[in-house]
Write a protein that binds this DNA or RNA. Structure first.
Lengths: 139, 139
DNA sequence: ATCCTACAATGGACATTGTCCAAGTCAAGC
DNA sequence: GCTTGACTTGGACAATGTCCATTGTAGGAT
């Protein structure tokens, strides 16, 4: 069952075949698909779905706070449905693999007032970069 | 005088008018220009400089480790010449302003081995997001 | 069950950002 | 002042994302 779909339904979202397919494709843990990957997967279930609809739907999910947008590589944005639990990302610089990670500590507490320049800070993103085990073994 | 230019010269870089202009445009603190912004600024000094050259030059500076590439918004990459001193970024979600900040603590130490999944981690990027004072006052 | 209507989907044009390449140009050493 | 290999150019191309007029449809009202 799709948790993501349930959450969206509960918000009075008008449910269409397209939105259902996008939500189903995106559901799960350690999912970090690009918009085009979502589209490609959606097309196998609903061949006539358009790119614009996938972009619109992902954008709405982000606005609703049910999906997080992640920019790990400066190329395409990735969409992470794991929005209900705070987490950070660990990225392999060679193959691009992404894992959700849960660091201890509060990164916000590490930023003293003198370094905040009067900003009201609402969230902190941490990206750990390195090489994953399988890339390391084929160095 | 351009520190960035000095450092590049010291590495045996072949010095051309184009590279000089790009280095001069990019030099300074709290500089976080996109490639196109660099190009626009460069054109005012050297009208015939091409986009390709700006991209090439920025890419080389990044490879040499004299400039850092920052992806704060999933749109265009930004180029930060402040590569000699480790720092993180504070970004205004409304106007896009960026400040360099220097948090205390070591974010790497906050990630336990059990959360590293065998990765060899080489660096950590932290992005603080919020609203800057001038945007807050015109809410 | 059918009708209405506001909201959603479509697809294709357009925008932005970035990469590539063949040909011309030039900095730096001799 | 040559020569040469590295640098620059401009334009084509690629990837990602946005916009909009038109068409379709979900879900409430009748």
């Amino acid at each position: 069952m799709s948790d993501l779909l349930e959450r969206l339904r509960g918000r009075g979202w008008r449910m269409t075949a397209q939105r259902r397919v996008v939500a189903e494709v995106l559901d799960g843990d350690h999912v970090h698909l690009t918009a085009d990957e979502v589209h490609a997967a959606a097309v196998t279930r609903l061949p006539e779905i358009s790119r614009a609809t996938v972009y619109n739907t992902l954008g709405e999910m982000v606005t609703l706070g049910e999906v997080i947008e992640v920019a790990t590589d400066g190329r395409a944005k990735r969409y992470d449905p794991n929005a209900h639990r705070p987490h950070q990302h660990l990225v392999c610089g060679r193959c691009g693999a992404i894992r959700d990670v849960h660091p201890g500590g509060d990164p916000l507490a590490d930023l003293p007032d003198t370094e905040r320049f009067g900003f009201t800070i609402s969230n902190v993103e941490v990206t750990y970069r390195g090489i994953c085990p399988s890339c390391a073994s084929t160095a």
